[in-house]
Design a protein around this nucleic acid. Structure first.
Length: 222
DNA sequence: GGCCAGGACACCA
DNA sequence: TGGTGTCATGGC
């Protein structure tokens, strides 16, 4: 089973530093994290561009929008009704508990901020960790479907682990460095978009010597 | 025209 | 606790 640091080095060598998250403010990161749930990032960009055009990328501006207007602006990101509701509920919580700013929530110990986010409807573990890491620069490793898929193929996971188990695995084997967590998750996504889809494209894959899908020997020897 | 995407949640057995 | 249905759009 390949070492997690070895895989990181291979991915970094293959793709270079990616410097996520593509956003101008921490709150914009949180918007993107919510909107990208089970959605192609290109559709999220369309929705965020709509919000930017309406100067609606702040908690105050979104809170002031009528629900139906917000729904139409974020409609390209899919699931727009529930995402509009969840976005405004997040802002309501920030206003009630943190003077309306995400920064105040994030300026707490990691696990305190994480539990607060997880209490909110529509913010599950991946969305919470994305906000903590990419908006708050806090060392919380982000696990997503790509992470599960890739590291199952690499033999690091069985495939039935819970989110928290996988997060704990990465955080126990990597230094608690937000920059490292930031790049690692971004590299996993970039890699999987290219090679690690449900129909894998193994010919040019930089991890093919480690992967069960590309390497029959690795497949036989998990 | 089907498949897929940087999930989360309610519901049920 | 684990499996399943629902939410919805747009690119490929």
């Amino acid at each position: 089973m390949p070492d997690l640091n070895t895989i990181y080095t291979k991915l970094l060598t293959a793709y270079g530093p990616l410097h996520w998250w593509p956003a101008e403010t921490p709150f914009e990161v949180a918007i993107g994290a919510l909107l990208t749930q089970n959605t192609n990032w290109k559709n999220v960009e369309i929705a965020i561009d709509n919000l930017r055009r309406e100067q609606a990328l702040t908690p105050q501006a979104i809170a002031a929008l009528p629900r139906q207007e917000l729904e139409q602006l974020i409609r390209p990101s899919g699931f727009f009704r529930q995402k509009a509701e969840r976005l405004q509920q997040l802002i309501e919580y920030l206003q009630s508990a943190h003077n309306g700013t995400l920064e105040n929530l994030l300026n707490q110990p990691l696990e305190v901020a994480r539990l607060e986010l997880l209490q909110l409807k529509g913010i599950g573990p991946e969305t919470a960790d994305s906000i903590l890491l990419y908006a708050g620069n806090l060392p919380s490793f982000v696990v997503d479907a790509y992470t599960m898929r890739l590291f199952e193929r690499l033999g690091s996971l069985i495939g039935n682990e819970t989110y928290e188990q996988v997060r704990d695995l990465f955080m126990s084997r990597l230094p608690a460095d937000p920059e490292r967590y930031n790049e690692y998750h971004a590299l996993i996504v970039e890699h999987c978009k290219r090679f690690c889809r449900k129909r894998p494209l193994c010919e040019q894959c930089p991890l093919q010597t480690n992967c069960r899908y590309a390497n029959p020997q690795a497949r036989q020897d998990p």
